[in-house]
Each structure stands twice: as structure tokens, then as C-alpha cells.
Simulated scan of single mutants.
Amino acid sequence: MNILNEQTAQNLRLIRRKEVQAKTGFGASSIYAEMAKGNFPKPIQISERRVAWLESEIDLWISERIASRTSIEKMEG
């Protein structure tokens, strides 16, 4: 597999809810509440009874939270 394909595969990695919870610190109910408010990435249906999230979307969501905190700290400091 060449480097471009490896990067594409990493960007398209699907992760299940427990890994989303581990990465974000959210519990299941918080994930679904934030999704309902439009503040969190929505999952992809992978089978009749299973969903997963794109890891790249979760990582982007985390990065946005960090950037938001950093900009607030600069305004206060």
C-alpha cells in the first residue's frame, strides 16, 4: 500500500462508541445529546444494528474544542 492510500485509510477508519467515549471523555448519553443538538459528529450505519463514527471527524471535533479553548485563553490573558 502506498503512502497516499495509507493516509486515506487512516482518515476513513471507523470507530465504535466505546472508542469515541474513550477519546472524548463523554458517556453514551452525552454523545447522543450533543448529536441531537448538532454539536457532535453523527455516526454511520454499518449494519442493521450497529453504527460507527469516522475517526477523522471525532479527531476534528476534539481539535476544534482545543482551538476554542486556546482562543478564549488568549482573549482573557
Rank of each mutant, 00 (worst) to 15 (best):
M75W: 08
G77Y: 13
I44Y: 06
G38P: 08
I66N: 12
L54F: 12
E64P: 06
F40A: 03
T24H: 05
A9M: 08
L4V: 14
N5C: 04
E76T: 11
V20Y: 01
E76S: 09
I58W: 00
F26R: 01
A67I: 13
A67V: 12
L12R: 13
N39I: 03
Q45S: 11
R69D: 15
S68Y: 08
T24R: 04
E55Y: 01
E73V: 09
L14D: 04
F26D: 02
G77L: 13
G25M: 05
W53H: 04
S56W: 06
R13A: 10
L12H: 13
L12F: 12
P43K: 00
Q45F: 05
A36K: 15
R69A: 15
N5K: 06
T70P: 02
P43S: 02
K18D: 11
S63N: 15
R50V: 11
I62M: 09
N2Q: 08
A52L: 04
L54I: 12
E64S: 09
Q10I: 11
N11A: 15
E57M: 06
Q10F: 09
R65K: 15
L14R: 03
R17H: 01
E76L: 14
S29P: 00
K18F: 05
E19H: 06
G25N: 05
K74E: 09
S56L: 07
A36M: 09
P41V: 04
K18Y: 02
G27P: 00
S71V: 13
S71K: 14
T8I: 12
S56I: 07
R13H: 11
E34N: 06
I72M: 07
E34S: 03
I46Y: 06
A9E: 10
E64C: 09
M75R: 14
E6N: 13
Q21R: 10
A36C: 08
